[in-house]
């Protein structure tokens, strides 16, 4: 039926495409690389520079503010455990990577989501791209990223941004589209310009959903950060990868538990932040 010679050289095309990109936009990629590296170094310095107890206290303090004393105590114990298994520096490098990658992912994703919510055309155009980014196995697009950015934290950050971008866009679009049509209409009816409706009505009312997206972006960033250990990004990914190579159960578990602690911390803190949004607080007022 199918001739032996039938073969679509899709992979080859993509490969030459990536090569062409690398050659043509070398300057652009170099610039991106420099900027991301500088950002990462700066953020890592904030986390890894001061003594561990100071960083642990500040992070617990954030937990206290976002959620309450239980989370603060739990976070402090978790950080002591991370220190105890000698993964502190790796954990801080990972945290820096997550912060940089998810901040950039949100800086792109939230405005894109707002745009998609306001234009059906943008929404239809963006959706398949997001599907592609989310479902393409993460390892696969590590490869072109490495071709372009070589090794180190930058390819890790870029791959993480691509992987974590989708929920930021999706949740923002969903949140804004779900805002009560009548309330938006009220804004128009009293003569509010569209920009002000966005700022005063749509974004605040969509905030709980947008915050759920922020949470998802951060969690996906964290999971990707470990994978980017494969391409030489500093952080908890490195002990995980090397323990896999050496079948080192002890090291693997210690690095793994540090990832879990970071994940729980980031999840609870962002969830706490979303509960603090004015709309979430206003809705809770019903029960009071």
């Amino acid at each position: 039926m199918i001739p032996e010679s039938f073969r679509i050289p899709l992979g080859t095309w993509i490969e030459s495409g990536v090569e062409w990109l690398t050659d043509t936009f070398e300057v652009v990629f170099d610039l991106i690389k420099t900027v991301l590296l500088a950002l990462f170094d700066a953020v890592e310095l904030v986390f890894a520079g001061p003594p561990w107890w100071l960083v642990a206290l500040v992070l617990s303090g954030i937990a206290l503010w976002a959620k309450g004393w239980r989370l603060a105590v739990g976070a402090l114990l978790g950080f002591v455990l991370v220190l105890g298994v000698d993964q502190w520096d790796n954990a801080m490098a990972t945290l820096a990577l997550v912060v940089v990658a998810s901040t950039i992912a949100l800086a792109i994703g939230v405005p894109l989501g707002i745009w998609a919510a306001r234009s059906d055309r943008v929404s239809t155009a963006v959706r398949p791209v997001l599907d592609f980014m989310q479902t393409m196995p993460a390892f696969v697009y590590l490869i072109p990223v490495v071709v372009i950015f070589l090794t180190g934290p930058v390819p890790g950050i870029v791959a993480t941004i691509v992987f974590a971008l989708a929920p930021g866009v999706r949740f923002t679009e969903l949140g804004i589209r779900q805002v009560d049509r009548e309330v938006v209409e009220a804004g128009h009816a009293f003569g509010s310009p569209p920009r002000r409706i966005l700022r005063e009505i749509q974004v605040p009312l969509a905030m709980p959903t947008i915050m759920a997206g922020v949470n998802q972006v951060i969690m996906l960033s964290l999971s990707m950060v470990v994978i980017s250990g494969l391409v030489g990004a500093r952080g908890l990914g490195q002990p995980v990868v090397s323990s896999l190579g050496r079948i080192d159960v002890a090291l693997g578990f210690e690095a793994g538990i540090a990832v879990v602690i970071l994940a729980m911390y980031l999840d609870r803190v962002t969830a706490g932040l979303s509960d603090r949004s004015p709309v979430a607080r206003a809705l809770r007022a019903t029960a009071a």
């Binding site: 009560d180 309330v183 009220a186 009816a189 009293f190 003569g191 005063e200 009312l205």
Partner: peptide
């Protein structure tokens, strides 16, 4: 049109359409 809506015509909605926050 926005200026007219601000100064000359206002509206009351079926489901109130208040800003919950």
């Amino acid at each position: 049109l926005r200026e007219i809506r601000r100064r000359r015509v206002s509206m009351v909605f079926q489901h109130f359409a208040l800003l919950p926050h």
